[in-house]
């Protein structure tokens, strides 16, 4: 039985799950039996996919797992009539998402398209340029690097109230928080990356009588790219966190952080969850896009070899 192709189990499971969801809302039939069938068959499906190799199976297992969690959430919340102000079911969140699409887009534009992108660009750019600027001074490097590492470990989002005082309630103050949050990881990683080129590779450039600039351009920057991408990816997440949390400290009447904090206080949890969904999508899609770019640009790095 366990050798049956897992997608058959998945199909049966999904049908049973849909049935159970339908019944639990109407109260027109037994809920327990289809639910148990759904759980069992979906479990078997996941087990089957987990044994298989290939990208489809590798995608199917977590996808099914996510679906099961969402479905369980939905069933439990509806089945046990959990109050809406505690936990809305996923279907309600989806509905809120669609109903408030325009509002969600405005929040997204305010927080992501303005604060995050401006702050991320400035912070990463400045970190990179400063790393290049201090590259020729070992003294400055030894002074600034431990500093950067220390500051990276500090709760930088705390500067949000200060930035609000300096730059006002609008998005520039959030961008400023993002700049500070993204600057140091980029500085530290770029510096580490510029030290990455090996002694032999440097000697080779020296044997060509290549100057500082040529060595930087042809050897050290390409060798630094994996580190730079590490910072770019880390900063993508940090930037979003920085902008959202900075809005908790005060903002005009727009923005994802503003929406989450005010609607949570008003118990409109479906809209809060919808905004969280937007934030999650924005975060993972930015990260995914950067990871893809990294793969294209640093295809030669050992961690990607063999897949190109």
């Amino acid at each position: 039985m366990r050798n049956a192709p897992p997608f058959i189990w998945a199909a049966i499971g999904l049908i049973a799950a849909g049935l159970a969801r339908h019944v639990v809302a109407d109260g027109t039939g037994p809920v327990l039996a289809p639910s148990l069938i759904a759980l069992l068959t979906l479990f078997l499906a996941m087990l089957g996919f987990a044994r298989r190799e290939g990208w489809a199976a590798r995608l199917a297992t977590p996808a099914l797992f996510g679906l099961v969690l969402l479905w369980l959430w939905e069933m439990l919340v509806i089945g046990f009539a959990v109050p809406f102000v505690l936990l809305p079911p996923p279907s309600a969140i989806a509905l809120a998402f669609i109903r408030h699409l325009a509002l969600l887009w405005q929040d997204f534009a305010q927080t992501y398209l303005h604060a995050v992108i401006a702050g991320y660009g400035l912070g990463c750019g400045a970190g990179f340029l400063v790393a290049l600027a201090i590259d020729r001074s070992p003294f400055l490097k030894r002074g600034l690097l431990p500093m950067g590492n220390m500051i990276s470990a500090m709760p930088i989002v705390g500067i949000a109230p200060i930035m609000v005082m300096w730059f006002g309630f609008e998005w520039p103050s959030k961008a400023a928080v993002v700049v500070v949050m993204t600057f140091f990881p980029m500085l530290v990683n770029t510096t580490a990356g510029l030290a990455e080129a090996g002694a032999i590779e440097r000697d080779l450039m020296r044997s060509y009588a290549a100057g500082y600039g040529v060595t930087l351009l042809k050897l050290r920057l390409p060798a630094a790219l994996p580190h730079i991408f590490t910072a770019l990816k880390l900063n993508a997440t940090l930037a979003l966190i920085g902008a959202v949390v900075a809005e908790f400290f005060g903002t005009p009447i727009l923005g994802m952080g503003f929406r989450i904090s005010t609607e949570a206080a008003k118990m409109n949890l479906d809209l809060v969850w919808a905004t969280i969904t937007v934030a999650a999508l924005a975060g993972s899609l930015s990260f995914g896009a950067l990871a893809l770019l990294e793969r294209l640009v640093t295809f030669w790095h050992p961690s990607f070899r063999g897949s190109s």
Binding site: A264, A280, G283
Partner: peptide
Amino acid sequence: TVPVLAIAPMVVVV
């Protein structure tokens, strides 16, 4: 990759 911190207000309120 998700700004997990965003759920903080909701968790506190709930």
